[in-house]
Design a protein around this nucleic acid. Structure first.
Length: 603
RNA sequence: GCGCCCGUAGCUCAGUGGAUAGAGCGUUGGCCUCCGAAGCCAAAGGUCGCAGGUUCGAUUCCUGCCGGGCGCGCCA
């Protein structure tokens, strides 16, 4: 049977006919079928009678009864009834509930996939500064973005994943300086020079060591004679704004000194080496986590190609800018932002915001139908100004979706794990993956709505037991794999051709033996919801809906499995049950694959 | 101060303009001579933060209040 006519569509058509017969003037009023919470209220229900009762000047119950009287019999419709104040409850026949199984066994890894759509979507996510390892906050963005990309792609859209590399700003200069100073420590005595607001993490020392190994003393210059020119360092215990400002000024002066001592060429080499080292680490980390990007977009390239200057000119030409205190401002307030924003500082350099406008202008020029940005919650105040700038450029800001991913708070032993990006005191994504494994990390990140705070219980994620939701899903999959090995008398999993042959055989099996088993029918019916679930989850950008659905599928499978033995001697019964088990396995595999979680055949 | 997120079972959280509000953990009690017990079945546990409003119907939508979390740069 074709998926274009799932059982609920047939029910809707039957209702349509009945309504046309009972109330010809209502023939075109839409019918919505819902899944009742309580299975005692049917497989599908409609509240149509409530909505039209007033117009029809009849009470809902009467309306519902008039419709039900006109419904014609159909092999998919087991029963129809009026309930409560005017609900129309419909019950599917066992035939309707099992009809999906051959379809699943034919479609296999494509079951649930949507028709190809004309939507071209760009998803930008993670985009963390390449100035240090990814931490657990980035991990959530990575897990969410990757799952969303898979979901949208499976739903039928064309998806591109992009990472925006912030390689142009001061932060990379600070990292380069930090590495250089650690590198110098191998050659000179500079014990008190390393600034408190430079990058403190151990990875900085590692890059420095690597630099020494590959390039020897190439970058050694002694800054000691020049230190007197630098702004003084405030005492460490001073945390007032003046002291903070002084430290920043000193840091900038140190960067300038480094550039001066090394000369433009050597500074550029150092800068590039540091950046490449960090990027290589980011790529490796993400790849190990199963997160892949199609394009890596460099912020610096926006300057190199003159796009930043062009974008700002465009804004100026359109009359949305003004100069004040030597800086160039964008009149963001004219587009709903709470204050105007600087595009070019008094010192002549462009702000990050200016580059970001250029970047998004470029995204629009690449002609996507939807742009999805996944940002950390700390970027929250930033969305209005970006939208304002895009609108000012005459672009449709509605095509840009910004999803803010809230932070994850780690718990260990019931205690919050302290996180501070200062002084390199944070748990990295790599450490998390090593501690709990990729699958558990993925599932825990995706369990909650992305815009909601997440408590990540490290102890629970590591537990190999019932309370860990990771194993619940994987266990169902492995159980089925084990059944299939047993059924085929194999020691190993069936190879692809054996698996295909199995699916073809099972797709042709007579399913009537399942008709008398409520738990089998419930499971089969649940499997039939997968394609529409994919569409709504994709539309709502909500991979966690898929995760909840899969848990439901697993629960129904486990319940059925405990109730009925699958590998029974009666071959007709056994094959029908195997068809259901195998179809369940396909749904689990397809769903877990989208979420980036492995589907093990043994555990 | 302004903005965003949240308030549902002891805990962590789903959920929906509809009928008796769900899951996992925790508690209690059952189920393996038989396909994987990392599983299943059952019991107990609720003023859906409070107060108004819209609606035939509100835990869901709107407004106000109370409580919690986060963010607000000529940083990136």
């Amino acid at each position: 049977m074709e998926i274009s006519s799932p059982p609920e569509k047939i029910l809707a058509a039957l209702l349509r006919q009945a309504i046309t017969a009972a109330y010809p003037e209502e023939a075109h009023h839409p019918i919505f079928l819902e899944r009742p919470k309580d299975p005692a209220h049917g497989d599908w229900t409609t509240t149509w009678a409530f909505h039209r009762a007033r117009t029809l000047k009849q009470n809902p119950r009467t309306v519902a009864e008039s419709i039900v009287r006109e419904v014609t019999p159909h092999p998919y419709l087991h029963a129809i009834e009026v309930a409560g104040q005017g609900f129309i409850n419909l019950y599917l026949s066992p035939l309707a509930k099992t009809a999906i199984l051959p379809h699943i066994l034919e479609r296999r890894h494509r079951y649930g996939a949507g028709q190809p759509s004309s939507e071209k979507i760009l998803i930008e996510f993670v985009s963390a500064n390449p100035t240090g390892p990814l931490h657990v906050g980035h991990g959530r963005g990575a897990a969410y973005g990757a799952a969303l990309a898979q979901l949208l792609s499976f739903a039928g859209h064309t998806v591109t994943c992009e990472y925006y590399i912030n390689d142009a700003g001061r932060q990379i200069d600070i990292l380069a300086l930090s590495v250089w100073l650690r590198y110098l420590e191998h050659f000179l005595s500079l014990s008190s020079l390393f600034p408190p607001n430079a990058y403190q993490g151990d990875y900085v020392r590692l890059i420095a060591a690597e630099l020494k190994e590959r390039h020897g003393a190439l970058f050694v210059r002694d800054p000691t004679p020049h230190l007197a020119q630098l702004p003084p360092a405030p005492l460490p215990d001073r945390l007032d704004p003046d002291a903070v400002e002084q430290r920043e000024a000193r840091l900038d002066a140190l960067i300038a000194l480094a550039k001066q001592l090394l000369g433009p060429d050597h500074w550029a080499i150092l800068h590039r080496l540091v950046l490449e080292s960090q990027l290589a680490d980011l790529r490796a980390d993400l790849a190990e986590f199963g997160v892949h990007f199609d394009t890596w977009f460099s912020e610096q390239s926006l300057y190199d190609t003159g796009l930043v200057a062009r974008a700002i000119e465009q804004l100026q030409t359109a009359g949305h800018c003004y100069e004040q205190d030597g800086a160039l401002w964008f009149r963001a307030t004219a587009f709903g932002d709470e204050k105007d924003r600087v595009l070019r500082r008094a010192n002549g350099s462009f702000t990050y915001f200016a580059a970001d406008i250029a970047y998004h202008l470029n995204k629009y020029e690449r002609r996507y139908t939807h742009l999805i940005n996944i940002w950390g919650a700390d970027h929250h105040g930033y969305a209005p100004r970006l939208r304002a700038a895009l609108t000012a450029l005459g672009l449709d800001a509605n095509r840009l979706e910004i999803h803010l991913v809230q932070f994850a708070v780690l718990y260990r032993g019931g205690e919050k794990v302290p996180m501070s990006t200062r002084a390199g005191q944070y748990i990295t994504l790599r450490e998390l993956r090593q501690e709990v494994g990729n699958d558990a990390a993925r599932i825990f990140y995706l369990m909650r709505k992305s815009d909601q705070h997440l408590d990540f219980d490290l102890d629970l994620a590591k537990k190999q037991s019932a309370d860990n939701p990771v194993y619940y899903l994987q266990y169902a999959h492995a159980r089925i794999a084990s059944l299939l090995r047993e059924a085929l008398s194999l020691v190993t999993d069936p190879d692809p051709s054996q698996a295909l042959a199995l699916d073809q055989t099972l797709a042709a099996v007579d399913l009537t033996p399942l008709h008398t088993s409520p738990s089998a029918l419930t499971l089969a019916q649940h499997l039939s919801l997968f394609p529409s679930l994919i569409q709504t989850a994709a539309q709502e950008r909500a991979p966690h809906h898929l995760l909840l659905y899969l848990k439901e599928v697993a629960a129904r499978f486990h319940a059925w499995y405990n109730e009925e033995r699958i590998l029974v001697p009666d071959s007709a019964l056994r094959n029908a049950r195997l068809a259901l088990a195998r179809a369940t396995q396909h749904v689990l595999t397809n769903g877990l694959t989208i979420l980036g979680v492995s589907a093990p055949t043994r555990m």
